[in-house]
Structure formats: structure tokens, C-alpha cells
Write a protein that binds this DNA or RNA. Structure first.
Lengths: 226, 226, 226, 226
DNA sequence: TATGAATGAGCGTTCATTCAT
DNA sequence: AATGAATGAACGCTCATTCAT
């Protein structure tokens, strides 16, 4: 999963929803976005020039404006491209699940950790966090399209787990934060501050350690179990 | 990661002795930093003008350069001002503790949560995270001055808790992430995406829920206990 | 030190094919240099604005930076443009000559004087002298590219004249100063202080008077002649 | 003669023409000028800040404005201070002389060369040449106060030498340029371009070589002599 | 006399965006 | 569909000069 997400236009059927701009199999806009993502991630939005993006994408500055009406639109495009698959992927695993949530949580965490260990993954979410101040619309977009889907789904997953007696009675909404927070911190420490655990940035170990504690902590009490 | 710094001019009577012109107080640099912090937080470093900072601090653009040699130096100054109290305060609670770590952890988490509920707190850390790409030196500074002190201290605290048999054998370094991560996520969700739990941004509840799970999950096994 | 460079756009019809907007000719850099030369000469480097240069060259300020990376680069460009023809032209007359040096010297002096009577000639050398303090690299460039070629050539010319018995035994290196110095003084007095001889700034007369004295003074003595 | 010229206020009677500003024996303004001269010479007028001058003179920026109303006034002050002694000195030797001009010329040239071998000498004239563009009034001042006295005096000296038959019939005005030019070139090459003769910047040798040629070249012809 | 904090105008440089080709 | 020359608005920073003390 080297790209930050599934990019539908690269896949099978040439999604001809966008009848305009056809050249080199319609890959142009995507190439521009790839270049933009790489540079925004590396240098931030403000310090990246449109010219740099154009050069990296192999076209001229003016041509970028053929596909995107402004620099900010590139950011939007980036988020838009990343949003659907991300949410879908997560929701596919979680949504509507009934029963002991722990296997599903483990699967979800493992998937996320796996995704996170590839390069450029989480690039868009991190970008969104960083640039939210400059582009609140984009943060909103991310919120409504991703967070407002994933978080409630996880909350529901845990909620029904509580109701089903599979885990202790906890606040599902806050427990989601207990679940995912460490992953965020792990990534932030590593990428922003270059702080890594002594034995490397191994997501698998983190997930294992974290879930072993969490699941033990969520274990229903004896009296609950009965 | 408690209160990021004392902000003297937020307290007491507004120092408006000389309403318009010159003041000789060496509070000047601090006032400039206050203005910079507010604007950087609100609009980001890149989109904040030195002129804006000057105006908000009640001086002319040129005067800012009397106190800080460059715009970037304002960021550095902000971090420097926040660093000492932060680290010290945190370390005061933790360092060298021997015995069951849980009370100390609870105290630390409560303090941090309390600090985080005030205004402008965590402003600097969040600024640092956001601007780390543009100013890696500052991220480094933050890392060495704060993180490299606080994280090892917490790691040691947990480590000796494991050795003393007070908590299950876990990886102390990774467990620190399990401990603090949710707090970060909570803040980020709230401030970047305006995602808040249904019953408000109550840090106390978050801490309680989180620690109840965590402490239960860290409870030594029966066989360990014996 | 004759004509400092060919200035193509001073010649012929003014290239006003496209009166107001874009031109694609690569004469652009040259036009900018022309404007810069005029303004630097008139007001000095420091007091000349890039905007002034741009306006005079018929472009916007930003466009200047399309051709030159900085204001100083304009100065460099000016010198670079002037250097090649200068040195070559001078050396063409002098280099490797054997025999009585006086005809060659007269030719050289006449050429130089003729060049000096045109407009904008010597502008670059004078600029270099004036701005040497602010831009030592440029002075160095001028030295190595022009002076270190012309002066040794003249020195050698006189030296071989002495050896061949065509002129008195004199110090060739110092005699070069006796030869050229008056030209410099003449120009300086005229252009810096507006001091001109009573009957005008006639270089031809200066050269004639100067060489008549110099050649008489360099005439081998009777005993030398024999 | 370490200073660029005689500084009357340093000498004998305390020239009380300027009743204002008295402190530390009235030396203050002179100290400021000294500092300004050094810095203008080294870095040019534009690149020297008033603060630098103040610091070097050992007072505060504001105090400079107690003595000089503007930065440009420093330049004027510098020139004014240098002007009187320079011209007087030269004129003392030359003015009204009758007879063979060559001994006087030699004396004048030797004096000038001797002066030029000290440090900081010619600093002001060179400064004037360089900054003439930025401060034409100052160039004018220098012209009227110095050049318009010295050049006519030298011209007259040579003129009467021609009339008296001591030297060949030459154009006196142009011959002045032949006389002094080499000195200027010598200084310029040395100080601006660091081009020096192989055996060092020995003014004495230059003067000897130059005058030996010049005087020989000015020798009246046989037929003239008779 | 002397200070130095403060001002304000100005300059070099950058860059998103446009548009003739 | 594509180019890249050109624009123009903005920003960081400097510094001569002023003025309350």
C-alpha cells in the first residue's frame, strides 16, 4: 500500500466520470497530486511553490492550473482523493459488527499499523492536521468525510461490545480515544521529533503491547461475566 | 506536559500606565511573544505577518526587531519561554519516584489534563508540531529540552513499577505511548477538527475512563501477584 | 580599455514591434542591463532601485528576477558583458608585438580615447571602481579578466621596446602608469567633478599633448642610440 | 601625517569659532568624523550605519545627531575638515612661483607621494570620488575648494615655465593631467584592485620614473633653447 | 549632554496567478 | 493541451531619524 490510499483512477475500469482532460490515460491530475503530496509533506504547504510541484510532476507551472484552479485546490484534491478509500476501508471492517469487538479491533489496529508502516501513508491526515489552520474548509471536509464516519463506527462497535457483555462498561466514545491515541502519538513522535523507541519504530510491537493492556483492562469483571 | 508558561501580562491590572507611547518595562519582549503566540496559533506561522504581531503588541514593525532578530526567532523565543516550566513541572512530580507508579501517573495525568483545560495551554507544543517541518531546529530544541526529559522519566517510572511487581510486565517505553496518546488525540480532535464527545470536552472524564481501563489492564496477574 | 561592450539596442530602429506587452526576444536581459547601467551610473548602485531598473527597461520588478537572481547579479552581469570585448580589443592591438612600441602605443591610446568619447563608454570600469568596496568579488573579476591581461601586455610591450633600444631604459611597469594615468584623470575630472579644460573635453588633444611629451621623454639618449 | 589632513582643532589655539558643543576639549565631533572616515572608507557610505559610527566613536547613536544633523552631514564635515589644509599645503608650494618649474614640480610630487604613503591619506578624496554620485553638492564643494585652486595653480606654474623657455611649448592644462594622472592610477590600481608593481607600492620609484620621463619630454628642443 | 527605544518609510525578493502564443 | 514570460501584491527586514527621559 505505497500510496496513501487506493486511487480509484489507477485501478481497473477507467472511471470516466470526468470527461474533460484526457491525456496519457488521464493520469495527469494524479501525477500532479502525487508531486504535491510529496512536497507538501516534506516542506509544508506554504513553503512549497507551484513551480516545484509542476517540475516534479513533469509539466509546466501553467499546466498545473489546467487541472487545479489554485494551489489550495491541490490540497483539497489531495484530501478528496484520500478520503473515500480510507473511510470505506475502515468501515468495511467495522460497520454493523455484532459480537465480541476485540477481534475486530485487533484487525482494525493491525491494518492501520500495517498501513502506517508503509511510506507516505498517513501523509494526508498529517497534512490535514498541520494545515488545518490555513484551510479550515479542508479540515471540515476531512472531519465530515472521514472522522464523522470512522469515530462513530468505532464508538458503536465498542458500545455494542459493552452491551453484549464482552467488555467492561466503559464510555465508548472516550474509549475510542484510548484505543487510537497511542498510534497517533507514536507516529507524531517518530515523524515530527524523530523520537523512536530503542528497538525501532515497530508498529506491530506497539499494537501488541497496547492491545494487551487495553484488552486486559476491558475484560469484564468476574461478577460482570457471570 | 502541563502549563506551557507563565504569562504574566495575562494576570493583574493591564499595564496601561502610559496608554499610547513608550514603555520602558522589559515586559516588552514578553508582550511581543504573547502577540506572536496568539497569531501563530490562530493563523499559523507562515500566514502571520510581523506587522500583525507588532500591531497586536502595540508597537511598530521595526520595534519587533529590537527584541527579536527575525520572525523565526519569535518562534524560538516562544518555545524557549515555554520549555523550562513545562519540563520542570512535569519532572517534579515524576523523577526518582519509587513504588507503585499508579498514584503518580494519576496525579500527572490529572495535572496535565487540568493544564490542558486552560486557554492557550498546549499552544506552544501544538505550534511546534505544526511548524516542525518549517523549523526543524525548533523541533529539535523541543525534543531535547522537553521530550527527552519527560518521556524517559515516565519510562523509568513505569519500568520500576514493573520491577517492583506493581504492574504487569509490559514494555515501559511503548506503554508510555498508551498512557499519553489518548490525551493528544483528544486535544487534536477537539482543536483541529472540532470533534468533541457528546458531553463536552471534559478532560477529567477522559482521564478517568482512560486510567480505569489502563490500570485494570496493568494489574498484575494472579500468578504474578503471588 | 576601449569600448566596454557592444550595446545592440542602442543601434537601429527601436524594437517597438509590440509596443506594450510581452516580447520574446532574448534581448531582454540586455535591455535590463542597459537600464541598470544607466541608473547605476547616474545614481550609484545603492541608490538605484530594482523597480527603477525594471521600469526603465519596460518590465515589472518581478520580471527582472526572471533574468537576474539578485540586484548584485546585475552588477556582475554588467561587468561580465563588458569584459570580453574590452580585453580582447585591447590585446588584439598589443599582444606579441615586436619592434618600436611607439606606433602601437599611439594606436592604443587613440583607440581608447576614441572609445572614451562615446557615450556610456568607461561606464562599467567607472562603476567597478566606485562599487569595488561594496562588491569586492566584482572588483576581483574585473582585475583578473581585464587588468591582469591588459597591464602585463602593455608592460611587455614597453619592456621589449627598451630591450630593442627603441626607448630609453625605464621601468616598464611604472611607465605603464605614466602612459595611462592621464587618461584616467582626464575622465575622472570631467565626469566626477565636471572639471574640463577650457577648450572642451577633447581626448584627441589630450592624447597628442601627452604622447608628444612622453615619446620625447622616452627617446633614447644620444649615447644610447649609438 | 596619519590623519587625512591637518586638523586645526587638534592644533595649538583652540579655534573657538564654534562656541557650541564643548566637552572633552571639543574633541567629540572630530572623534565622530574619524570614526565615520574609517567606516566610509572601508565599507562605503551607504553600507555604513550611523550606529556603527557612533559605536566606534564611543557614543550613542542619538549623540551623533547632536553634532551632525544627518548622515550626509558627516560626509560634508569630513570633506570640509580635509579641504583647507590640503589646498593650502599645495598652494603654498606652488602659488606665484616664477622660474624653472621643474624643481617645484618635483617638490610637489614628492610631497604628494610622501603624503600618499601614509595610511588614511587620500581617504577623503577617494571617498569624494566614490560618493560624488550620491552627494553632488559635496563633489562641487571639493571641486571649488580644492581642484579649482590646485589645478589652475599648477597650470599657471607650467604656463609660466613655457613662457620662460624652461620647458617645451605644451598645453599647460593638459600637461597637468600628464603630470598627476599616473599618481591617481597608481593609487587606484593599488587600493581598488590590489594591483601592485612587482617590487611593491613604492611611490618614490614611481615619481622618479615618471618625472625622469616627463622632464626629459619637456626639455626644450635645441632650437628652442637657443 | 547623552541615551536608546521607537518609528516609518522604503527596498529586495518571492510567488500565486494570468495570458498570449 | 501546454508553455513560460510577465505581473503585482505582499512580506521580511533595515536604518536614518526623532524624542521622552
Amino acid at each position: 500500500m505505497p500510496k496513501e490510499s487506493y486511487q480509484p483512477n489507477e485501478a481497473g475500469q477507467p472511471t470516466d466520470d470526468h470527461p474533460k482532460f484526457r491525456r496519457r490515460a488521464d493520469a495527469r491530475p494524479d501525477e500532479v497530486l502525487d508531486a504535491a503530496l510529496a512536497l507538501f509533506t516534506q516542506n509544508g504547504f506554504a513553503k512549497t511553490t507551484v513551480e516545484q510541484i509542476a517540475t516534479r510532476a513533469g509539466l509546466s507551472k501553467g499546466a498545473v492550473y489546467l487541472y487545479f484552479p489554485s494551489k489550495k485546490a491541490l490540497l483539497e484534491g489531495l484530501v478528496a482523493r484520500a478520503i473515500v478509500p480510507t473511510a470505506d476501508q475502515a468501515l468495511g471492517v467495522i460497520a454493523g459488527y455484532r459480537g465480541d469487538p476485540r477481534p475486530v479491533i485487533r484487525k482494525f489496529m493491525t491494518m492501520t499499523a500495517f498501513a502506517a508502516s508503509g511510506p507516505n501513508v498517513f501523509a494526508v491526515p498529517k497534512l490535514v492536521m498541520r494545515e488545518a489552520v490555513n484551510a479550515p474548509e479542508i479540515a471540515q471536509m476531512y472531519r465530515t468525510q472521514v472522522l464523522d464516519k470512522v469515530i462513530p463506527a468505532l464508538t458503536a462497535l465498542i458500545g455494542q461490545g459493552v452491551e453484549g457483555g464482552f467488555i467492561r462498561p466503559v464510555d465508548p466514545e472516550l474509549t475510542v480515544r484510548s484505543l487510537i491515541g497511542p498510534l497517533l502519538l507514536h507516529v507524531m513522535l517518530a515523524e515530527v521529533f524523530e523520537v523512536q523507541p530503542d528497538d525501532g519504530l515497530e508498529f506491530e510491537k506497539l499494537v501488541n503491547n497496547h492491545l494487551s493492556i487495553l484488552f486486559a483492562g476491558l475484560e469484564p469483571e468476574m461478577e460482570d461475566k457471570k
